[in-house]
């Protein structure tokens, strides 16, 4: 049994296709769905958690179809939305007891004590949640999501709005849960976090998965160095052997090459000759950000796609 499985999962809102033919197979891992705001991440989670109905296709969680057996699906998953919905005028313990009772846990008080301990909230359990920091509220929500020992947890932007140390802590907990055998489905638009903490990621843009695999696999699709160039004014494309254009975000244009320090002066000259106003250049190792640029670029120019792939293959030989 696969924890999460989708087949051509599609959601249309009127003429807008929010999620387009999603095919996923996720089991026992931390899976990150990455993409910019409005790319279809939350819509996907809402369909998988039975909160909205898909237009086409099917999805199953823990082996149960989300449309045919929604109650069983809800029984084996937990969903933490991005809103930070914690009752601030209730204590942490009261918040948790409500969830434990709703899930019909046998010994709600013991279970709550245990989970408050797991999430390092025992010391503040009887304070009102409005005195909690953002990171503590998130941990409280995570603790709530664990009361019925779900097999799958959906976390929508779990680190949104948290400071660096709180984010790290949240990911630590997520990692520990996964080690205990829980499948974790995370959405985020922080590429760096996904790269560090997810076993596998899917990049989604305009409702379509444009790249799928482990961060390392995806980065292997690029050459060993990435050169980022900041260009002011109009961009004039250049074509140089051994240097491939990846994509751009705003006025930053990225290229990839096997030897960045040799390619950089070549690229600088070529860009100047073509009439570009180069402001800054930098070399770094490929990151998921670059993978994202690459995959989005691929999608935008469909016919250029095959040629792109072909040239990359030639370079790698």
């Amino acid at each position: 049994m696969t924890a999460i499985e989708t087949a051509d999962l599609t959601k249309e809102f009127g003429s807008l296709c929010a999620v387009d033919s999603l095919n996923l197979n996720i089991d026992g891992e931390i899976f990150g769905l990455l993409g910019p705001n409005g790319s279809g991440k939350t819509t996907t989670v809402l369909m998988l958690t039975t909160l909205i109905r898909q237009t086409r296709g099917s999805a199953s969680v823990c082996g149960y179809d989300t449309l045919k057996e929604p109650d069983k699906v809800r029984g084996c998953l937990s969903y933490v939305p991005q809103d930070m919905a914690v009752d601030t005028n209730l204590t942490g313990r009261e918040n948790m007891l409500i969830f434990a009772r709703l899930y019909g846990i046998d010994n709600p008080k013991d279970k709550v004590d245990e989970l408050l301990g797991v999430m390092d909230l025992s010391g503040r359990a009887d304070d009102l949640a409005k005195t909690y920091s953002g990171g503590m509220r998130r941990r409280l929500e995570l603790a709530e999501a664990l009361v019925h020992e779900p097999e799958v947890i959906f976390l929508d932007e779990p680190t949104l709005g948290l400071d660096v140390s709180a984010r790290k802590k949240i990911w630590q907990y997520i990692h520990n849960l996964n080690k205990k055998g829980m499948t974790i489905f995370v959405t985020t638009h922080y590429m760096d976090e996904a790269e560090k903490f997810c076993d596998r990621v899917g990049i989604i843009d305009n409702g379509k998965i444009t790249a799928l695999g482990s961060p390392a696999e995806l980065k292997a699709g690029l050459m060993s160095d990435v050169i980022t160039v900041r260009i002011e004014g109009e961009y004039h494309p250049v074509n140089k052997d051994g240097i491939l254009y990846v994509g751009n975000s705003g006025d930053e244009y990225s290229y990839t090459s096997e030897n960045g320090s040799e390619a950089l002066p070549v690229l600088a000259d070529a860009l100047k000759i073509s009439g570009n106003n180069v402001m800054a250049m930098s070399i770094h190792e490929p990151s998921l950000d670059d993978v994202f640029l690459q995959s989005v670029g691929k999608q935008e120019e469909e016919q250029g796609f095959e040629e792109w792939k072909y040239r990359l293959m030639l370079r790698r030989r």
Binding site: T50, L51, R74, Y79, D83, A85, L102, Y103
Partner: peptide, 13 residues
């Protein structure tokens, strides 16, 4: 509006 409903709706209650 505050997101509680979605949490509750995703429960087996």
């Amino acid at each position: 509006i505050l997101g509680f409903l979605n949490k509750f709706l995703a429960m087996p209650v």
